[in-house]
Design a protein around this nucleic acid. Structure first.
Lengths: 174, 174
DNA sequence: GTGCGATGATGGATGTCATCCACTATGGGG
DNA sequence: CCCCATAGTGGATGACATCCATCATCGCAC
């Protein structure tokens, strides 16, 4: 049984195989980390009704922090297709977590609000998500965690979008 | 048009929205980076017939570097379900890239070999994969790249499996 | 006022992939 | 011989990303 819950090979040793260039490839390790992180995260978040992916958590937290926010803005920060975002929000509406109103000043757009039920869930979700992240990255020392956060924020700003001004430790990298 | 090719919101500003705890959450940034990286990678790798995910590339490179390797060993390092790995290898067999033989000393297991065609593809794939990774992480300075690699390797060893002894810069972290 | 292109949201089609389960042939140990 | 574990395989299912088309709305130019 490997660290990730999958059976490990039991009839042959594998400590001397070569990973070829993968052994020194940032993208291989980055994607591998994401696989492990996703699995761990999905397990943690399945305790509440928000299983699978960051989408619902992003909607919940960002709507909480920004009542009236646009679906398209959330989609933007979460790197989610507009159409997929609409479906996700529809699901959360059916779950009784959010509600939508037409923006009176721009009737093509919607404003998102949490329901009281959604608000209750926020506290839980914050705790679960923070603990999961802390636990996953606890194998790193404090300095490495700080460096990793800084580096990942840089990558986010350069590959996704500039971070809002209110994000702590954000540096103008654009 | 945002950095990732998706339309960005055009009728409202969004530089002052709050990301709530996501703004300081390692797992959010890690997963966001992976989304961006996956997209970039998939674009690069679609130039050759290995689109989508690291699976095929891992099979190709690790079989090249370790002729006769077990599917289960590749699955182990690539964090892939056995059943999914079997389907993937079947696909690559049909593409004429690999072939399988029964391991004579352990007849439950298979040995994987590349075909001449598979071998030809290795050179291309190596170049593409290396360039994609280099390009994606080029936004970081040299020190940050080195730190990121070291940190990600630590995470791999702690969350996935110990790295083989032949991997450069590997440290015993178990 | 009208027309045109852009915008935000929505629905649909499609492909891909992970997960989980069941099964078969094989191997090792009691 | 029996039992349990192992490696590989096939199937079912659910989730999700992507891409496309559509509609209502908006802003701008003529």
């Amino acid at each position: 049984m490997a660290r990730n819950g999958r059976p490990e090979p039991r009839t042959i040793g594998y400590s001397d195989v070569s990973l070829d260039i993968l052994g020194g490839l940032l993208s291989f390790y980055a994607r591998s980390m994401a696989i492990a992180l996703n699995r761990d995260y999905d397990q943690a978040i399945s305790e509440v009704e928000l299983a699978h992916g960051h989408g619902k958590v992003s909607v919940l937290l960002m709507t909480h922090a920004n009542p009236g926010i646009r679906p398209s803005v959330i989609a933007h920060f979460a790197q989610k297709d507009r159409s997929a975002m609409a479906k996700l929000i529809d699901q959360m509406k059916r779950q009784g977590l959010v509600e939508q109103r037409v923006d009176s000043g721009e009737r093509r757009a919607h404003e998102l609000y949490l329901t009281p039920r959604g608000e209750e869930l926020v506290v839980q979700v914050r705790t679960i998500v923070q603990e999961q992240s802390d636990r996953f990255f606890a194998v790193l020392d404090r300095q490495d965690r700080a460096d990793l956060l800084r580096i990942l924020m840089t990558l986010y700003e350069r590959h996704v979008t500039p971070l809002p001004a209110n994000v702590p430790d954000r540096k103008a990298t654009t």
